[in-house]
Write a protein that binds this DNA or RNA. Sequence first.
DNA 1: CCGCATCCCCAAAGATACTG
DNA 2: CAGTATCTTTGGGGATGCGG
Lengths: 225, 225
Amino acid sequence: MNLETITKTAETASKRRYEDACGAAHALDLVGERWALLVVRELLHGPLRYTDLAAKLPGCGTNILANRLRDLEAGGVLAKRRLPPPAASQVYELTPYGQALKPVIRELALWGIRSLGPPNFEGQLEPDWLEHALATVFAPVAPAGTFEFKVGELVASIRDGEVYPGPAEEPDAVLEARDPSSFYFLFVERSWDGVTVEGDRDLFEQLLEAASPSAVDAPAATVAA
Amino acid sequence: MNLETITKTAETASKRRYEDACGAAHALDLVGERWALLVVRELLHGPLRYTDLAAKLPGCGTNILANRLRDLEAGGVLAKRRLPPPAASQVYELTPYGQALKPVIRELALWGIRSLGPPNFEGQLEPDWLEHALATVFAPVAPAGTFEFKVGELVASIRDGEVYPGPAEEPDAVLEARDPSSFYFLFVERSWDGVTVEGDRDLFEQLLEAASPSAVDAPAATVAA
DNA sequence: CCGCATCCCCAAAGATACTG
DNA sequence: CAGTATCTTTGGGGATGCGG
């Protein structure tokens, strides 16, 4: 590596910023670029390698991903970590400051889901969508207790505000939804069609109430052509 | 107007979307483009005319603003309204769905302010920054009661979760901060330097506790070159 | 393979001028 | 006042290459 290379590497600065002394504007300076918040969303559930991250973000070019990772690292949102010798790979993980973006992602998701419409076909959803949804949307506001969620083939649970894969031991309430669509309509429109709850139904409704988006009329769901 | 014009107007579609069945991704499809959330931020405090909006967003070209307004209107976030005859002008205002973005802006601001640093000089701040800050950050979580805020020359108050300009009648608690910087450090770092509270201090601390960002270590404040 | 860097193309951002 | 037209610049998106 020669001097030119070093200079070239170092001069990759020159960011485009809002010149605005406002917390929201500054937040957008750090995570407002395209794909940035989706990178954070993925890392909310644990560290990931570059390739796995790329696989979870189809449509994001590898160069863009590399750029975002650099920017987010420079902004103190995430950090690169080298795994101990046996595994010669490295992972990206959120810093505590990056983890603090969870409420932002949560509010965005609560807002966006109302105009998103129910999942159209199974292929749209990742296998771990239920755990992720529970972790970002339900767990942060869950009352004390143990909840089990069965949606279609998937099962996950919440105990004391933490999410676990699979069924729970001695759950206080067990929700069973026919499919992701039923779960969607329960969450967004409070429709109990295709949904049953066993156990402490009041406790479950308390959770649902705490987690649900405020009911304002959203525009018609965007239908993919 | 001829056919070409109409066609030209109609074909201005072709948006760039994340193809992702996730609420957050869909939210970013609607308000994730550059300047979009700042437009929403401005409109949170009431309808604005095009020119006033442009004036509040220096750095945003008029064409970009026009594009964002079109996109946001198409997305059901805001609406264009013609004022009654005497005033021949029109204003942009948030729809109820657009108003529901307030928690998103709020969380963004809470997150961003921790790495923003205190305001450096007075010119950075708009004259109504205090009212806006109270409205988005404090008011939504304010306990019942009346609060008065005196920060430097500015005075505003909160009663029953609503913000009013100027002092309050019979406030339960009155905060007085020497300058915006003192207010910043109180909010972000819980430093009472340059700040005094008269009246029900416990009630005020309750408000502060409810409104403050969780205390995680943020990266060093970004210093403008 | 994994983790990027480089190249090319085009869509969007940014700046400025101009018009009903 | 409320935008549109036009031009330049920047950054995203896709493909490919390449060192470790």
